[in-house]
């Protein structure tokens, strides 16, 4: 027990002494990006507590408040900081709730992609031969179709398969599946590449000589050593997933308007763009870009920090 304690402290010390932590401390961009991401995450997680209004509580919405501009403009209303949309919902609150949906779909599909991609990548890289050839061929084929197209196809097929009223309910899951399944290739390719490198390293051969079975070798030895690049991809993929979700929702095949995501809000607002009510679409758009940019900056920094050669 006593020994474990020393190890615990060394773990923390190891992290505080690591190049990653030092690079983070020295990079203002990374810190800002990190703070923005965390703020978004917290706001999304605690949306009911944070947002000034509940935009989906029909009782609290007054149609008289519709299409109010942001507070600093002439007709602005102090209750609605960023103005209201055509139905009188507070834009600021819809953004927080929208980010909640966007991030939920984003995270869920990233985790889905990760699990599928890492598993297939490990198997492909470790087994080699025909299994590898087959998985990689499938990956190649899929790679030729942009994620958005695959997601659209899956959504279209889902529409054909399930009745309309059920589709509304299932839309979020279909979306997670569609975005998730279109993203696994990246993980699989990276993990396969790293696995090919790792499996030829002598520590894996040493484990084989001891007699450790392939499953355990993959889990205990190979997996921890391929997670570095995976984390980088996952970060960047989160940004892509959020964008993809927004795009699908913008195209009208994403989440239903009853639980709007940022993309849905932009789509709704887009109709009012020409009539001068720019705030309905611009603010959700800005929120989306800031969130994605922060995550991308974080991913970009992480990649450089993990690959010191590039600095």
């Amino acid at each position: 027990m006593k020994m474990d304690k020393t190890v615990e402290t060394t773990r923390l010390e190891r992290f505080l002494d690591s190049d990653i932590w030092h690079s983070f401390k020295k990079s203002p961009i990374a810190i800002i990006a990190f703070v923005i991401t965390v703020v978004f995450l917290l706001a999304a997680a605690f949306a009911p507590l944070v947002s000034p209004h509940n935009p989906f509580d029909l009782a609290s919405i007054d149609i008289m408040d519709s299409s109010l501009p942001p507070v600093w403009m002439d007709e602005g209303d102090a209750r609605f900081f960023l103005g209201t949309d055509d139905q009188g919902r507070d834009i600021f609150s819809t953004i927080i709730y929208g980010a909640r949906i966007s991030l939920l779909v984003g995270f869920a599909s990233v985790i889905f992609s990760m699990v599928v991609g890492i598993t297939l990548g490990l198997i492909s890289g470790y087994a080699g031969g025909r299994v590898d050839a087959f998985i990689m061929r499938v990956a190649d084929i899929q790679l030729s179709f942009p994620a958005i197209l695959i997601a659209l196809l899956i959504d279209g097929v889902a529409r054909g398969l399930v009745p309309k009223e059920m589709h509304e309910e299932l839309a979020v899951y279909v979306l997670i599946f569609a975005i998730g399944i279109s993203g696994w290739v990246q993980y699989a390719r990276t993990v396969r590449g790293s696995t090919l490198v790792e499996k030829n390293k002598e520590y894996v051969q040493a484990a084989q000589v001891i007699g450790i079975r392939p499953g355990t070798i993959l889990r205990r030895h190979v997996l921890p050593n391929v997670m570095g690049p995976v984390m980088v991809i996952a970060t960047i993929h989160l940004a892509i997933a959020v964008i993809t979700e927004a795009t699908l929702s913008f195209l009208g095949v994403g989440v239903p308007p009853t639980t709007p995501s940022l993309g849905t809000l932009i789509r709704i607002g887009n109709e009012y763009l020409f009539s001068g009510e720019w705030w309905i679409t611009i603010f959700p758009g800005a929120a989306l870009v800031i969130l994605v940019l922060a995550v991308n900056l974080l991913g970009d920094w992480l990649r450089d920090a993990m690959n010191p050669k590039l600095r």
Binding site: K201, E202, Q205, A207, I210, N225
Partner: peptide
Amino acid sequence: RRQMQMIFQDPFSSLNGRMR
């Protein structure tokens, strides 16, 4: 396997860096 073990060439890749 228990009776037969092996020592490898490259000291940097023959140990798993993630394990104590």
